[in-house]
């Protein structure tokens, strides 16, 4: 009888240990989920900024510049400081220094410049980056236009497949390998997008998504039609994607038209014939000038 009681006691103790272990692991999972939702350390779960929402939490965080879609990691909230302007609330940005795919040394300014910069933190191996690479490779894909610069930043060559990146990178795309940039911006993973306000030198938006057009759409929604909104447009600012001057809304043409016109433009540019070239206007002066001529 005594032996049975002892055995039952041991079994009970083992079960108690197992239950305590399960409860602890459950708490750990909840805590991590809370952090992924943008919650701040020490905050109750209910006061955190949820993914997919950009509403402010009074007294704890300012609204996110643009929301992320459901299921996508939200950027960390930025704590406000008293007596400073909105721009000072944004986290400081950093210039990007790294290497190109051919071993070239590159320094790109994102701080204290006139233009904004959209930095895409991508990787050659991440499945979530496929949509971005696909859109970047498409001639009708999106890239920064106007006063907004697009920059793709991967980790350094010791953490990346340079050959794969070379195959993924479309011509004309600015790609820099810089692990230090990932550290400077505390990038949690790829894909991740950061928008830097050039004049103030601060980060005015960050988040993730499944494609560039999705992120662009989120930014457009968040910024509205404001002039400070980074406008993502075509890779080739040529015939395929002209920006309407009145609405700054891209005019999208069928792919075949775009490719045909891009081919013609490429051939003309290779021959040194730019918009405004006299040979294009045999009977009169051009109404437009080539880039750089408006001064």
């Amino acid at each position: 009888m005594t032996a049975v009681v002892v055995i039952e006691t041991v079994i009970l103790l083992v079960l108690c240990v197992l239950v305590l272990g399960l409860l602890r692991s459950y708490a750990t999972v909840l805590e991590r989920l809370h952090r992924m939702d943008g919650g701040l350390d020490g905050d109750p779960v209910g006061s955190s900024v949820p993914a997919g929402g950009s509403h402010p939490t009074p007294g704890t965080a300012r609204p996110l510049p643009f929301p992320t879609v459901n299921g996508v990691m939200a950027p960390p909230a930025v704590l406000p400081r008293d007596g400073v302007s909105d721009h000072d609330d944004w986290a400081p940005a950093h210039d990007v220094v790294g290497q190109g795919l051919a071993g070239d040394i590159i320094s790109v300014r994102t701080v204290a410049v006139e233009h904004d910069t959209v930095i895409l933190f991508l990787s050659s191996g991440c499945s979530g980056c496929a949509g971005f690479w696909e859109q970047l490779a498409d001639r009708r894909g999106v890239a920064a236009t106007g006063s907004t610069r697009l920059l793709v930043v991967t980790k350094s060559s010791d953490e990346e497949s340079v050959g794969l990146l070379g195959a993924l990178r479309p011509p004309g795309l600015d790609l820099i390998m810089s692990s230090s940039a990932w550290a400077d911006y505390a990038v949690p993973g790829s894909p991740y997008v950061i928008v830097v306000d050039g004049p103030s030198g601060r980060v005015k938006g960050m988040g993730s998504g499944t494609s560039l057009s999705q992120v662009s759409g989120l930014m457009q929604q968040a910024y509205g039609d404001g002039a400070s909104a980074p406008v993502l447009g075509p890779v080739n600012p040529g015939p395929g994607h002209r920006m309407s001057r009145s609405t700054t809304k891209p005019i999208v043409k069928p792919r075949s038209d775009t490719e045909r016109e891009t081919d013609v433009d490429t051939a003309l540019l290779a021959a040194g014939i730019y918009p405004g070239h006299p040979s294009l206007y045999p009977t009169g002066s051009p109404s437009t000038t080539r880039p750089g001529a408006a001064r």
Binding site: D95, G100, A102, G103, D104, I105, I106, S107, V108, R109, A112, V113
Partner: peptide, 14 residues
């Protein structure tokens, strides 16, 4: 050493 607003690139074409 790049002054403010200046950026640079050093390369050798393959």
């Amino acid at each position: 050493t790049l002054p403010a607003t200046w950026e640079g690139r050093i390369y050798q074409r393959p």
